[in-house]
């Protein structure tokens, strides 16, 4: 009874006329919109649907931003496909430059959608290698981040990016700051051969704890094969004998008076950056790389390879080739300076 009364009253309220009172402002209507404010600009949180009226540059930029910010997988994928088309066209249409594209798209390495990641790799492959080389340090950071991702699939895809990077800029990868030791660290951690981890695990007691999650069953032998293969490529790039440069009679004067042709030619001096530790240091030439490799990683990786060889199959085959590189790279007859 009470509730129906209440309802009746409420219903009535809608039709009651508001009383006007002298000296009081008129009551605002229910659909009143406040227009008293002023704004210099309005940002609209929607994309334009029309694509005709926009010129090519704007469309490129729009797709670039869509590829990163869009919530929908498909939209991201399509945007990437568009970008790839534009870049690989003849002549290539790239109004923002490779560096800007990389800066924007690198976070997509650990994107959740598999199609987006494959499209991303395709886009990267379309980029001109010469323009990728100066950005290697940055790309490597993201690749290392991807290689440490929790999801196995993303790790594998990050390895594909690594493969591409080694193809287009192998020298830069192994010689940029942190490129040698940090990347090796990531590789060994992926494969479960990391000595620092082992020491952290078995620091007490005399029993050796079992290697819990490192075996191939969990990681998948397929993935492990790929990991070993890419590591092999990486080491090959690192141990590649340097071809001596042809004698350039003007090199001396170029050095003194000409502007250098490469970006940041004095990077190894690290004049303006923060002081680097051992891991993030640059190892620009082969003997240096070999020396730190021998000191820090040879034992761990060799032990890991031994283990992997015993598994046989694809993994064993990959490990055997890695072993070959290990022996070739360091046993090629070049004498290392005395330690």
């Amino acid at each position: 009874m009470g509730s129906s009364n209440k309802k009746k009253k409420e219903k009535k309220k809608d039709f009651q006329k508001a009383k006007l009172k002298v000296g009081k402002a008129k009551a605002k209507a229910a659909n009143f919109t406040d227009t008293s404010f002023k704004a210099k600009s309005i940002s609209v949180n929607q994309q334009a649907i029309l694509s005709e009226g926009i010129d090519a540059v704007d469309q490129f930029k729009q797709n670039l931003s869509l590829a990163v910010t869009s919530k929908s997988d498909n939209q991201r994928r399509d945007a990437l496909a568009y970008l790839t088309n534009q870049i690989s066209a003849t002549p290539p249409n790239n109004p923002v430059g490779t560096s800007a594209i990389l800066t924007k798209l690198l976070p997509l390495i650990s994107d959740t959608s598999a199609t987006v990641r494959t499209k991303l790799l395709a886009l990267f492959r379309a980029l001109p290698p010469a323009e990728v080389q100066p950005n290697v340090e940055k790309i490597l950071m993201y690749v290392r981040g991807g290689m440490a991702h929790m999801s196995n699939i993303i790790r594998t895809d990050a390895l594909s990016i690594m493969e591409w990077l080694l193809e287009v800029a192998g020298d830069e990868v192994v010689s940029c700051p942190g490129g040698w030791l940090k990347t090796l660290n990531s590789f060994t951690s992926m494969l479960g051969w990391n000595p620092s981890l082992v020491s952290a695990l078995s620091n007490q007691g005399w029993t050796s704890s079992s290697k819990p999650t490192l075996d191939a069953r969990k990681r998948g032998s397929e993935a492990q094969v790929k990991q070993i293969q890419v590591l092999t490529q990486f080491l090959v790039a690192g141990f590649k004998p340097e071809t001596p440069e042809r004698h350039n009679p003007r090199a001396y004067w170029d050095n003194i008076y000409r502007l250098p042709g490469t970006p940041s030619p004095f990077a190894h001096l690290n004049l303006f950056g923060t002081p680097r530790d051992e891991d993030s240091e640059m190892y620009p030439d082969r003997p240096l790389r070999q020396r730190v490799f021998d000191a820090k990683w040879r034992g761990a990786i060799a032990a890991g390879v031994e283990g992997a060889k015993k598994e046989g199959g694809n993994v064993g085959r990959a490990a055997a080739s890695l072993n070959r590189v290990l022996n070739d790279g360091t046993g090629d007859g070049i004498l290392l300076p005395a330690r």
């Binding site: 950071m141 290392r144 981040g145 440490a148 940090k182 951690s189 952290a200």
Partner: peptide
């Protein structure tokens, strides 16, 4: 048991920190 996973995340943290 999860030391390996943690180490991965530690590396990810390190990479992300450098970025």
């Amino acid at each position: 048991s999860y030391a390996q996973e943690f180490y991965d995340q530690w590396l990810a943290y390190d990479a992300q920190r450098q970025i």
